[in-house]
């Protein structure tokens, strides 16, 4: 019982730790954009769009 609680507490600390690190670096796997190549070249990386414009209405 104690072992299980210990490992769960450890797990919680790891998750919270990773969350804190993500918060400190302002990082998220779901961010739309991030660091791109040096200089002024090119448009965006990733994107907020799926490449097709127009309504999906049928």
């Amino acid at each position: 019982m104690a072992t299980r609680s210990f490992f769960y507490a450890l797990w919680c600390l790891v998750v919270l730790g990773l969350f804190m690190i993500a918060a400190i670096f302002g990082w998220s796997p779901f961010a739309e954009g991030g660091r791109a190549g040096r200089g002024s070249g090119g448009g965006g990386t990733g994107g907020g769009h799926y490449g097709y414009y127009g309504p999906h209405h049928k």
């Binding site: 961010a31 791109a36 002024s40 965006g44 990386t45 769009h49 414009y53």
Partner: peptide, 28 residues
């Protein structure tokens, strides 16, 4: 719709942080 490409450029290092977005609206 509006295509939007953003570039956030560091004035000192010229490092670019980029993202794109779009706004679209239709009716009928």
């Amino acid at each position: 719709w509006v295509d939007l490409d953003y570039r956030l450029v560091d004035r000192k290092t010229q490092q670019v942080y980029a993202a794109s977005g779009a706004a679209e609206r239709y009716e009928g």
